[in-house]
Structures are given as structure tokens and as C-alpha cells.
Design a protein around this nucleic acid. Structure first.
Lengths: 341, 341
DNA sequence: ACAATTTGTGAAAACGTTTGCAATTTCCTT
DNA sequence: AAGGAAATTGCAAACGTTTTCACAAATTGT
């Protein structure tokens, strides 16, 4: 006997009945005689029988597993999204395979392939910042594997999507800074290729122009990532060009904090000299001194909604007239010390 | 035809050969005629054939999947552990299922059951702080499913373990504070039930006594979690009892930062009045002002070593004389502003 | 007491793959 | 051209389950 796994056959042999009867008994099928049922369930209990997951998957053509592809996991926003996804999945008896691409295109392609061979019933994906080509995702559609994008989505692929209203969020953040009397708001952005970066940048520009002011390229920077160090470099760059700015909007909290660090190092006070707003509402933005004004993103909701949409695809897999949908979630501005002037 | 999945049968039918030949051709078996092989591989390519994962698992009695059970994912240390695990797993063609228990015992039991039915080839686990009963883990051993514990381990279960030398780390942290001339070091700890908490606390006490000083219960607190707010509460509690202390060792960085916040609020300066040391070396400890002295834990190494041990179990599953082993990893003290006196 | 139900059970196929064995074809050798 | 070896290929079983269909046994109605 290998691997100690108790199977339905073992039970059948032991009780001198057929596997079919055991299967039915365990499924509580009314066809089987109560006495037999009792014998089977008791023996199953005693032997600690667990139905073999792989066999079930093969038989039922369903793996009760969802795949999630995302670029980072040490990330409070994604962690909240994951919680939302997991809660929905667990409530339906599903497990979740998490594929962490570490923002690598290559890894993303590998992960996509891994999930494409019938290992999961559906996939939730957030594309990495390196990704500019989407064949690997298109393949999910070709194989009609249910797919939902969240946060960083692929415009060209026709499927359900759940996104944050990044434009609106950025607009309201910059608008807030302007309403407190600031006139020259600098911008410290993330990867330019990313759709969410573009949206945030547009929101920034439009908020300024909405006040009849002009956008000033001298106080605008973009970065390949959204890390603390990038925020520091951005401020150095801007300072080399001009020191005329009194507000700053950063596309992530980490960029904002890096910027603040550098501003302090250059002798500026936040918020007295320069007021600052970040994006994401990570825990650190509440702890830091000065605490950071920022945009709160509904991560949990995003996960929950994405997962529900995915299940809706899974459950209506054969429905011809299913129409992909894009849900846009609202954010909220959290005002703290860094913009409290 | 359902679900569009191309199977080996489709290829066989199309080419008018048997499935066995197709299977062999795809496996590049030398038995099959080059011409046939060519025809098969070309058609497979054209139809974008991918071997069905579930069928393979059933056939080979191996899922090429590892399960990881851990209590949190928004946690830099665990995230590093995960990276280490993933890197080893990927290099062997394995995927990783991550089960996030959210520090809930109930969830941990469910997750363990989920992984117990042949869904994974082995399990890496870090127990939640709520867990005081271990039947669900013992069951892995009963079924001889390879199991490795990391970080928060279960003493009673005889299997491979990888841990941090928490005692040693705490000792060296407190020793460092004492060597800078501080005499009364407060302790702000995490969940008392957790083995790692106990070890850190012991290291703290022994370091004090090693200097011929006495441990003072008035300046010791324990918390149910290791969060920022717990650190704040701890300082309030201590302050209500006494204000006589000039150093502080906290069992996590977040506890340390919460403590610092509260100390500042009470008019103390860090490090001038009270020097502080945390534990874990999260990014925030480098960013915060004052930057935080802390213990760096080799998270990536822990993941890598754990995964390697697990694979060693998997590969020697039938080896009678396999002896479980416990690896203890060294940490390093990172001295920053918060203890720079 | 015999047919007609009802009730309970088993055999076999199916999910997609690999592989030992047997069967067939092809190619040499004489 | 026949015989045999070598090269290809196919059949069937197996992995653990569910489920359709058929059949046996027990019960009911007359």
C-alpha cells in the first residue's frame, strides 16, 4: 500500500460491496439502504477517508481552484484585494493559487501558462508594469477560461474588468491641494507605461487646468517604480530644475514619503512650505510624521467584486450572450497632517 | 465539444493513430518513427495542445504543487520567505498554493484539510498565534504527506523545522542597548503563547541578567498582537506604573514604532531619553524618523531552506531512515538612529 | 401464488494521461 | 522470396472518482 491514502476502493473491499455503493453512500444518495450507508460512513470516518481531490477534478472537469496573478504581494492594496478574493472563494468552497510575478513580464508569461492547463477554473489578473504584450492573456479567452482583470487591466482584451477611478482620485487629491491655497503642485509619478499611472497623471493635469492654472513640466517627474528611493530621486531632479513649488502629489505613498524625506533634507517643512498628498493609504502613511494625506483605495471591495464576476463567468460558461463588463470603483481622499495648512 | 480543451485524443483522431503513439511522440520517445513524431508535434503546436494537468496528476500521483500555510501575507518577513519558497519551487517546475490563515485557528484547520486530500505534494507551514492544538498538522504525518514548519513551529510534531534564533537575536539586541550605557530596558512583547515570543522574552531577560542587572516587571508588557496600536497601549500601561526606563526592546518593528509614537507624545526623545530597538527590519524602520535599530531576519533564506528540505522529503518519501532536522538561522543586528546615543 | 412495483446493488464507462505488453509492419539477410 | 530481427504501433490497464444502466432482491397488490 503506497502513500497511505485511503480510497473508496479500500472501503468497498473491506465491506465487501462495490465502489459504486460506497460512492453513493458517501454522497448520501437515498437509493442506498440505511444500514449500508451507516456502515460506509462509519468506516470512512474510522479510516479518515478524504475524497481524492485530483480524481474529483478529472471526473467533474472542475478544480475548485482560482488562480490569481499579481505583480507583488508585500503591498497593502493587493493584500486587501486578495482578502476580498479569498473570502468569496472560500465561501464557495474554492481555493486560491497565488502567482506572484514580482513585476516581471517573463514570470507573468510562465505563470499564465502554468494556469492554462486545466489547473484552475478561472483566473484573476493584474498585469505587471513590464507587460506590453498580451498574447498570454488572450490565450485564456481562446480557451474560454474565465478571466477577470483587476487594477492594472488590459484594454485590448474583451473580458470583465474592475478598476479604480484613478483619474478621479488624482483629480480630487490635486484639487484638494489647490483649494488649500497652493498654486504650484509638483507631480511624482510611477511607471509611465502603466494605465493607472497615465490616469493619475491626467487627473493631476486636469485638476490644475480646471483652476485656470498652467501645468509646469519643470516640476513633473516619472519613475520606473513607485518606491521610496524613487521619490527621493524625483525631488532631487526637480530641485535641480527649480525650487518653485508649494505642493506635491505623488502616485504612491512610498513615492510621497521618499519625497518628504528629501524635502526635509533640503530644509523644507511639510506641510508649511510644501504640502504633500500620496496615493493608496498604506498603514505607514498614518504612522509617519507628519501623517500623510492620501487616497484610500477600496482594495477589499475590488477583490470581492472581481471574484464575484469571475464566478459569474464560471457559472455561465456556456451562455452565448454574456457581455463583459467594466466596473469602476470610487476612492476617498483622506486628509492628514501633510496637507493640513 | 466542451471547453475547447485540446486533448491527446483529438490529435490521435485527426492523424488516425492511437493515443499511445501520440503520447509517446510528445514525450519524444525514440520508439516512434520520426515522421510520425513530426506530424504529431506539428499538429500539437498548431492546435496549441497543453497536457491536462489534472489527468497528469492522477496518473503520476504527483501534483507538482506545494502548499504554504501562513498567518499573514502583508508582512515583509513572510513575503521574503515566500520569495525563497517560490524560487526553489519554480526551479523544480512546481507551483505554490498559498493559504492565508489571517491568524485564525479555524481558518488554519480548514486550510490544512484543504491541502490534505492529495492536492499538493507537500506542505510548508507557519502556525498562527491562535493555534494551541495540532491535530490538523499531525494528520499530515499520519498520511505521510511531507511537511516542514518554518518560523512558528510546533514542537510536538516530529518533522523538519526551520527557525530563527529568536533567543540569540533578542539577547544581542538588548545587549546592544545595555552596552550603550542604558540600565533599564523596557520590554514590549507579542503574543505570549507563541514560541517565538517566549524565546525573545527569554533572550531579553538573560541579556539583562548577564550584566548583573535585575529584570523589572514594571517595565514589561505583552500583547495579543504585534501591531502599532499595541505598542502605543504598552507604553501607556508602562507609564502608568513607572517612568523609570531609558531603553526599550520591542518584539516587532510595529510595536517599536507604536511605542515611539507614544513616547514622543509623552514628551520623551528617542534616542536621547530612551533608546529603542525593534525586531524584523521592515522597510518602514529604515524610513521612519528616527530610523529604527532592529534585528534583520533572513526571510529569503528561511524560505529557500524550508523548500529544499521539503523537496528532500518528497524525493525520499519511501526512505525508512529519514531523520527530521531542525535548522536554526542566525540574524543580524542593524544599528540605526533610535539607539544611536 | 404470480405479476408488478419498489428498493438496493453492481458492472462498466468516462475524465486525460502513461506504459507494459502484444501485435503489426518494415527492413535486412541469405 | 522466405525467414527473422528490428522498428513501429496499438490495446488495455491504471490512477480515484461519479453516474448511467441493468439487474437482483424484496415488497406489494391482486
Amino acid at each position: 500500500m503506497k502513500s497511505g491514502q485511503v480510497t473508496i476502493k479500500d472501503i468497498a473491499r473491506e465491506l465487501n460491496i462495490s465502489v459504486s455503493t460506497v460512492s453513493r453512500a458517501l454522497a448520501n444518495n437515498p437509493l442506498v439502504k440505511p444500514a449500508t450507508k451507516k456502515a460506509v460512513t462509519e468506516l470512512a470516518e474510522k479510516l479518515n477517508y478524504q475524497p481524492n481531490f485530483t480524481a474529483l477534478s478529472l471526473r467533474n472537469n472542475t478544480t475548485k481552484t482560482l488562480g490569481v496573478i499579481l505583480p507583488q504581494v508585500v503591498h497593502e492594496f493587493f493584500a486587501n484585494v486578495l482578502r476580498g478574493i479569498e473570502d468569496v472563494a472560500y465561501s464557495k468552497g474554492y481555493s486560491v493559487i497565488i502567482c506572484n510575478t514580482h513585476e516581471s513580464f517573463e514570470r507573468e508569461v510562465i505563470d499564465a501558462k502554468t494556469l492554462m492547463n486545466g489547473r484552475v477554473d478561472g483566473v484573476l489578473a493584474c498585469v505587471s508594469k513590464e507587460t506590453h504584450e498580451f498574447k498570454h492573456f488572450q490565450e485564456f479567452k481562446n480557451r474560454s477560461i474565465p478571466l477577470v482583470f483587476f487594477d492594472c487591466v488590459v484594454d485590448d482584451i474583451d473580458t470583465d474588468k474592475v478598476i479604480i477611478d484613478d483619474y478621479d482620485a488624482a483629480f480630487s487629491a490635486v484639487d484638494h491641494l489647490l483649494k488649500t491655497g497652493r498654486k504650484n503642485i509638483a507631480y511624482v509619478g510611477g511607471p509611465e507605461g502603466l494605465l493607472i499611472s497615465k490616469k493619475r497623471f491626467e487627473g493631476y493635469k486636469d485638476a490644475i487646468e480646471a483652476q485656470g492654472l498652467k501645468v509646469n513640466d519643470l516640476i513633473i517627474t516619472h519613475n520606473n517604480a513607485g518606491k521610496f528611493e524613487d521619490g527621493q530621486h524625483s525631488i532631487k531632479d526637480i530641485m535641480n530644475r527649480t525650487q518653485i513649488f508649494d505642493g506635491l502629489f505623488a502616485a504612491t505613498d512610498m513615492l510621497a514619503l521618499g519625497a518628504i524625506k528629501e524635502l526635509k533634507a533640503s530644509g523644507f517643512n511639510v506641510p508649511q512650505d510644501i504640502s504633500v498628498c500620496g496615493f493608496s493609504n498604506w498603514k505607514i502613511s498614518e504612522i509617519y510624521e507628519p501623517s500623510l494625506t492620501t487616497i484610500d483605495q477600496p482594495g477589499y471591495d475590488m477583490g470581492e467584486i472581481s471574484a464575484k464576476m469571475l464566478f459569474s463567468q464560471i457559472e455561465h460558461k456556456n451562455n452565448e450572450n454574456y457581455q463583459p463588463e467594466t466596473r469602476v470603483l470610487k476612492t476617498s481622499l483622506i486628509i492628514r497632517e501633510s496637507s493640513n495648512v
